[in-house]
Design a protein around this nucleic acid. Structure first.
Length: 606
RNA sequence: GGCUCCGUAGUUCAAUGGAUAGAAUGUAGGUUUCCGGUACCUAAGAUGAAGGUUCGAUUCCUUCCGGGGCCA
């Protein structure tokens, strides 16, 4: 039996891997009577000859033979039975397989012919992604940028992988924190508005949150001087008592308090909208905790009657999760007010009613790891239909070289400021290089935006989310190396070549002939381009934009190497010229699509 | 204190249990007749410590050290 593919002119990477895996499986069976479950092919390391590597060590015992012997026999078998394989090399227990020249041409032909090259077929599953989750008492900061870019990118990746995706944002718009801003505004605001002050709405509200803190601290000092302990002073300070009273009034629907709350929230939402537009992120639905907490309370009642929760003598409601390796957890305070987890229960219910998704992803910082573990356990105990498919996409804090990022310490990096700074830097760099002659002012500004934001997004997304990372503003504005602008530059370079070729009327259509061979720099580029869909699957399975970031960087790097080694437009052989040009075009499209998955827009010229 | 995450070149980041641990940056040096030099090529440079499992450990297990987070 021979493994042959009829249409040798058109082979996807997946078909090739499957074909070779099948040959290896057959070889193991016929030569050694080993029925392997799964054949795993790896990429051959660069220092060795070959494309795919099969590791035979695991079969040593069953075959009763030394690894190099197994590899030798298996190599001979595969070479003799699979037309795609030209030759093989054995290094210890590693079997390295080299593909025929024609196989490479077929792979390229397949990539070029694939009308759905960047979209996987529908998976018929609905995925809900909740991200951003701001508080309405202050503007967004650096940590939010990581959150928003992550959430948006994962959504893009899941869509490309064939999922139906719904993006949601749960805004924390109620609670003591917003009352603090409101109180300070009442006391010191003097009817200031975003319009009258020229301050962006979220920043204006944030200003009063800071004002509250300042006044509160001053009161604490005074109380301490009159003999109170630190704790007493903190609990007795009039500012805090007033804020607490305001929260109570809010819960009792006090018209005046509600009016102020709505007014200030509208400022914040208007401000957030601008920030989101600048970030390039969006949502299908925005939820507010002020609308979900009551539903959460209902679920608490339900759980009480089911015996999932229990009430302590003081009236507070708890759940015991000791059997799950956790401890007791409060779900409702003794005064009947809800805690975060109460609201999250309500939101989960509401999201299920609205969308009924198969999977629900929460993009939230890792300081909430415990919180989500508890939430998911509670949903299971309540036996809700939405208790499965929940995943907390947890990410680490973004550090600054100077230390931690905490608003209290005043070293917080504001998201709007940072984005503006990145765009400004992009502008300065681009002006220095003077390559944008003929750009209108609007075109220039769009370009600066894409470059600055691309640098920022790529920088934050290339790192594994769960790791704490260091953001160095000074280094991030360096447009060299493994960065967004490097990728954008490579794309612009490709487009320049394509434009020139088009002016010269060079065609990109060609047909597969047995005589065609590809240089190694071409093969490597073909290999990467053909891997696009596999990378999407991988990134979607791991919910990891970093997989895409690494991929698009490798692709850009390999293109530049190819460009350095081989002529494209200047190639004299007409067929080679066409093939290379078609590969260049395909590489450009692939870079563009991959970058888009990260939310990075690549410019035609820069 | 309990639980949890992290520890890799000077620095910032990679590596489904596989080969000589990859990049970038910085440092030192180099690049054709060139289609965009923000490119390409070369060199030096790292797995916190000790055990264990394995043919093979950055990866899995145990203890310790260091850092972060959550719960008190």
């Amino acid at each position: 039996m021979r493994f042959q593919i009829n249409t040798h002119f058109d082979l996807s990477m997946l078909q090739i891997q499957d074909s070779i895996s099948a040959s290896i499986r057959l070889g193991l069976s016929q030569l050694f009577s080993i029925e392997a479950e799964e054949i795993i092919l790896q990429e051959t390391k660069k220092e060795f000859e070959g494309t795919f590597t099969f590791v035979v060590f695991p079969y040593t015992k069953q075959a009763g033979m030394a690894p190099p012997m197994i590899a030798q026999k298996l190599g001979e078998f595969v070479q003799g039975n699979n037309d795609l394989v030209l030759s093989f090399q054995v290094v210890q227990g590693f079997l390295n397989l080299t593909l025929t020249a024609q196989t490479w041409v077929s792979i390229l032909a397949d990539s070029l012919a694939d009308s759905d090259a960047f979209q996987l077929s529908p998976k018929k599953e609905k995925v809900l992604i909740e991200y951003s989750s701001p508080n309405t008492n202050k503007p967004l900061h650096l940590g939010h940028l990581r959150n928003n870019f992550l959430g948006f990118s994962v959504a893009q990746i899941m869509k490309a992988a064939g999922y139906e995706v719904i993006k949601t944002n749960l805004v924390n718009d109620r609670g003591i924190h917003i009352c603090k801003s409101m109180l300070a505004y009442q006391l010191f605001g003097e009817s200031e508005t975003p319009e009258s002050s020229g301050i962006k709405g979220d920043h204006l509200v944030g200003k009063y949150y800071v004002a509250f803190d300042k006044a509160y601290k001053a009161e604490i000092e005074t109380l301490k001087q009159s003999g109170r302990t630190e704790d007493q002073a903190k609990a007795e300070a009039p500012m805090l008592l007033k804020a607490q009273a305001m929260l109570l009034a809010w819960e009792q629907q006090d018209p005046e308090v509600l009016a102020l709350w709505e007014r200030m929230n509208s400022w914040v939402f208007a401000g957030f909208e601008k920030s989101y537009a600048q970030m390039g992120v969006d949502f299908d639905k925005i939820y507010r905790e002020s609308n979900t907490y009551l539903l959460g309370k209902k679920l608490v009642d339900e759980g009480l009657s089911q015996g999932v929760f229990y009430q302590k003598p003081d009236g507070s409601v708890w759940i015991n999760l000791e059997a799950e390796g956790l401890d007791e957890k409060l779900v409702l305070r003794k005064d009947g007010t809800s805690v975060y987890i109460t609201q999250d229960m309500g939101t989960a219910q509401l999201k299920y009613e609205d969308f009924g998704a198969n999977q629900s992803i929460y993009v939230v910082g890792n300081e909430q790891d415990y919180h989500f573990e508890v939430l998911f356990h509670i949903l299971k105990k309540l036996n809700k239909p939405y208790s499965t498919g929940n995943f907390h996409l947890s990410y680490g804090m973004v550090d600054l070289p100077s230390g931690k990022m905490k608003s209290r310490e005043g070293t917080v990096v504001d998201a709007d400021d940072l984005m503006a700074e990145m765009v400004q830097t992009a502008k300065e760099r681009t002006m220095e290089l003077g390559k944008i002659d003929g750009f209108s002012e609007e075109e220039s500004n769009t370009l600066f935006n894409h470059l600055g934001m691309g640098a920022l997004k790529y920088f934050l997304l290339k790192v594994d989310p769960k790791k704490r990372m260091l953001f160095n503003p000074a280094e991030s504005i360096d447009f060299q190396g493994n960065t967004g602008p490097f990728i954008q530059y490579t794309y612009a370079r490709i487009k320049s070549i394509v434009r020139k070729a088009s002016e010269m009327n060079i065609s990109t259509s060609w047909t597969v002939e047995p005589s065609i061979t590809l240089a190694s720099a071409e093969q490597e580029l073909v290999y990467l381009v053909a891997q696009y869909k596999l990378k999407i699957e991988e990134a979607a399975a791991q919910m990891a934009p970093s997989v895409i970031a690494q991929y698009v960087y490798d692709l850009a790097k390999q293109f530049n190497k190819f460009y350095n080694e081989l002529s494209i437009i200047n190639e004299e052989d007409a067929l080679k010229q066409k093939i290379r040009l078609s590969l260049v075009e395909m590489t450009g499209k692939t870079i563009q699509q991959a970058a888009l998955l990260l939310g990075v827009i690549v410019p035609e010229r820069m």
